[in-house]
Design a protein around this nucleic acid. Structure first.
Length: 723
DNA sequence: GCATCGGATTTTTTT
DNA sequence: AATCCGATGC
């Protein structure tokens, strides 16, 4: 079969374009991922490219994974020649940096600092510089440093244009220094240093240029300066660059993304070709018309005309509710009604909002209705304390120079090492010109002098920690990660610390075991690769595909997804567009695009919802409808936009009756009592009970070895052996 | 060294 | 309103 079949003429032209710089401007739902994947396949099948000479980069792991699977299918019989390199910008950079570590101010064992590590390090910096973290919030300084890095501005070049800027400049310099001392890169460094490596080492650059002859980029509108420069360094003078993107969907400006890279590219590569994908395969014409009405108000943009052959569809519903409770109730009720009428499945529905805080009212409403839901983002698995603790232990074992991790675990669980002992230890380490971790190792085997002025107990505690660390390091060299974790947890009696017998304690311990299970799943990965995996994979992936429930997510998180029914809630001026964007033209334009992204996620049904009154920060206020709403022509809309006032009692009553009928028609649990399952850490077991809760399925299993455990189905990776 | 209290803070967050 | 951080007191 020819894989150009099934593509429309525009898609086909883009896919089979001659080698060279290509820009595909693709409207929402126009099959841009499809085009990217087919282009990769085309290069291998028709242009005779070696799969390995392809590099495809995406922004999310999810996109990378999807591409991987689909590409593997397309290239199924061309196996043996290997598969293209495929991953996120950050993962690709980490791979390169690891390989070329001897040219860098870190060792091959460097670790990757995430946001909370970065903030911890910044707190340390502020302390050193005698700055009050209240007046200079670490988060804000971190943001400033991050955008400087994304703009490729080095600390020395950071403009000290104001007092605050001077503070940032100094913090930035010291922060970077400390990162090197910790043998660490932060997220942004991965891009910055990969670029630096290629810029400063001609031989390395030539090597990669020869190796990657074809580069493909997804969501190009979201690249930042560092990423764009990196691309320029990676391609030769006659580049085969295939970029896919949509400037109308650029929503990460505040993270340094610059859709003007699209224009920059057109200027830098005057011989490029542009392809426009305008046919939409996702939404009804009503939805597209509304989307275009919103985005056409956007100044200076290349106009795209979106069309579909899916027909007009149903009108868009605009609904004004009294407050956020009624807003949430309306959403739940409507989803309930749609699913009861069998118009669609619960999983076909999504609720999108501007800020995470808005999920709260929704969660309560779903909870009250006894309906399950799936929440994207918010409470992150890797953000949980116990998970971070364990990762910090592993990182310390892997890289004793990692001071941030050391300080995190040194007294966790408490072992009598308080602020004073730690200070003395840091001082002694500095005096012996060692990183604190290495110093503790020395102290453990009696090769270093104990810190002065400490109680025997504290000094003993430090030495004993050093001995433990040495023992773990020894084991790390020979044991799989999962077994190292066992040894570690056992020797610090972590379970006793975290699991206090309450339900919460059990959950915490279960999270620890899930991480262990993950290590078991990636049994082939060494400690280094495992840590990198953990650092670069976010848990957007925790989204359970199997649970049949509506999805709650921010508009940002919704990009790239589609649902039959979409509710965009909180359409109030001040929320969308967000108040903080009011006085910034560019920011307002981005709010508009954000709304556009939300609208264009919908396939069949679109609900736009707002509340007359909204409680924020304790004070309840009356709000105006979003200014974007007036851009949508009235003839596309249905609903009761003029209806105001407290209909709560009535709504409450209705809710009650509908929920009762719904309670017995929830989504199906995946596991049933009596099933025989296998867990990577606990072995074989029998399911005793399983139920759906808010965003997941909780399974109670009796394991032969490990006893009875309650696990969450989305994380546990259970394998069903037989029912 | 740990618990508790008080005060400040509150956009979005691919990696 | 709720949460998180830091300082204070035991």
């Amino acid at each position: 079969m020819d894989f150009l079949d099934g593509l429309n003429p525009q898609q086909r032209m883009a896919v089979s374009a001659p080698s060279g710089p290509v820009l595909v401007l693709a409207g929402p739902g126009s099959g841009k991922t499809r085009v990217l994947i087919h282009r990769a396949a085309y290069l291998v099948r028709h242009a005779g490219a070696a799969p390995r000479s392809l590099l495809a980069v995406t922004f999310t792991n999810k996109a990378a994974r999807e591409m991987q699977t689909r590409l593997a299918n397309l290239l199924a019989d061309a196996h043996g020649a290997g598969l293209p390199s495929l991953g996120t910008f950050h993962a690709a950079c980490a791979r390169i940096l690891r390989r070329e570590a001897d040219r860098l101010p870190v060792t091959r064992d460097f670790v990757i600092f995430d946001d909370s590590d970065q903030e911890a390090l910044l707190r340390q910096v502020l302390k050193e510089l005698n700055l009050d973290p209240r007046q200079h919030p670490p988060g804000r300084i971190h943001a400033a440093i991050s955008s400087a890095k994304n703009e490729l501005i080095l600390p020395e070049a950071y403009p000290a244009s104001s007092y605050v800027a001077e503070i940032v400049r100094r913090a930035y310099g010291r922060y970077d220094q400390l990162l090197r001392e910790n043998n660490a890169f932060d997220f942004d460094d991965l891009l910055v240093w990969a670029g630096r490596l290629l810029r400063e080492n001609d031989d390395v650059r030539d090597r990669y240029r020869r190796f990657y002859q074809h580069i493909l980029v997804d969501e190009f509108q979201d690249t930042n300066t560092a990423q764009y420069e990196l691309l320029r360094l990676l391609v030769s003078d006659e580049p085969d660059l295939f970029l896919v993107g949509d400037p109308d969907q650029s929503i990460y400006r505040w993270r340094g993304a610059d859709y003007r890279n699209v224009q920059r590219f057109q200027k830098d590569y005057p011989n490029h070709r542009v392809f426009l994908l305008e046919q939409n395969y996702r939404s009804t014409q009503h939805i597209l018309d509304a989307a275009m009405a919103v985005i056409d108000r956007h100044p200076d943009r290349q106009k795209k005309r979106l069309f579909t052959d899916r027909g007009q569809g149903t009108p868009i519903v605009l609904r004004e509710t009294y407050d956020e409770q009624e807003e949430a109730a309306y959403v739940v009720e409507t989803i309930a009604a749609l699913t009861l009428q069998k118009q669609l499945e619960p999983r076909d529905c999504a609720v999108m909002y501007r800020t995470n805080a808005q999920s709260r009212a929704l969660e309560e409403a779903f909870l009250h209705a006894n309906l399950p839901y799936r929440l994207v983002g918010a409470q992150r698995f890797y953000g949980r304390r116990e998970v971070k603790d364990l990762i910090a232990y592993l990182r310390l074992v892997h890289n004793p120079a990692d001071q941030v991790s050391l300080l995190r675990v040194l007294n966790t669980p408490p072992r009598g090492l308080g602020a004073k002992s730690i200070e003395a230890m840091l001082e002694a380490a500095a005096r012996s010109q060692q990183s604190p971790g290495v110093y503790l190792l020395d102290l453990g085997r009696g090769a270093a002098e104990a810190p002065s002025g400490l109680s025997a107990r504290a000094a003993g505690g430090l030495a004993s920690f050093g001995q433990h660390l040495a023992a773990w390091r020894e084991r790390a060299a020979s044991l799989p990660v999962a077994e190292l974790i066992d040894a570690l947890l056992g020797s610090v009696r972590y379970r006793e610390f975290i699991d206090d017998g309450t339900e919460e304690g059990e959950d915490r311990w279960a999270n620890v075991l899930e991480l262990r299970g993950l290590a078991q799943d990636y049994i082939d990965l060494g400690l280094s690769e495992f840590l990198q995996q953990v650092a670069l994979v976010s848990d957007q992936d925790t989204l359970t595909e199997t649970l049949n429930a509506p999805v709650l997510l921010t508009l940002h998180a919704a990009k790239g997804l589609e649902f039959r029914a979409v509710f965009v809630i909180g359409l109030d001026d001040g929320l969308l567009p967000h108040q903080r964007s009011f006085d910034d033209r560019e920011a307002m334009a981005e709010e508009r695009r954000l709304f556009y992204v939300g609208i264009t996620r919908a396939q069949d049904f679109l609900f736009l919802v707002r509340a007359f009154r909204r409680h924020s920060f304790g004070t309840g206020g009356v709000c105006e409808p979003s200014r974007f709403l007036s851009d949508i022509p009235a003839d596309l809309l249905a609903g009761d936009a003029g209806h105001r006032g407290p209909t709560r009692a009535q709504a409450l009553y209705e809710r009650q009756t509908r929920w009762e009928s719904l309670a017995d028609a929830p989504a199906e649990p995946r596991y049933r009592a009596g099933m025989h399952v296998q867990h990577s850490a606990f072995g074989d077991g029998i399911v005793m009970e399983s139920h759906l809760d808010r965003e997941d399925e909780t399974v109670t299993i009796a394991f032969g070895q490990a006893g009875v455990k309650r696990l969450s189905a989305s994380l546990a990776r259970l394998e069903v052996l037989d029912d």
